[in-house]
Amino acid sequence: MTIIKTDPNFKHEVAAEPGGEAIKYCFACGTCTAACPVRALDERYNPRKIIRMILLGLRDRVLESDFIWLCSTCYSCEERCPQGVPFAEIITAVKNIAAREGKLHPAYVTQLDLLKQFGRLYELEEFDNKKRLKMGLAELKTTCDEVAKLLDDE
């Protein structure tokens, strides 16, 4: 028999995050899971199951999982939830907690670095500006250091 470590405070922790407040209203109808286009293709991602895991306090299993990163942010779950539980926000809250514990998915580590460097996800080079000018589009600044200043404390 395996003893599963639980943390009954986890649901309160999620509820304390901006966007996580409504988690305790879930009555497990599964509309979120039925609406989810990711779940339709990949069994790893199941919104109802994730909510139950949070409510049961399976903190480590949730935060260390691969599945929390699989939300496509389509918002179908929260648009259809009869209880007004915004699951897209809840999974964001869970990912933010994971990020603070050093478990941020490497794709986002890269994106944060790019934003700090260029102010955008992609580097806009002078070559791109030439193409833009040729089409009659405005030349754009290639960097924005304000982004790094704002993100450095985050």
């Binding site: 901006p18 990163w69 964001t92 933010n96 998915h105 994106q111 102010g119 304000e146």
Partner: peptide
């Protein structure tokens, strides 16, 4: 000219950011 990233790409990392 001063517009930069909207913030959406990093919401999974930091909602506040």
């Amino acid at each position: 000219q001063d517009f930069a990233c909207c913030g959406f790409p990093i919401k999974s990392a930091t909602r506040e950011g």
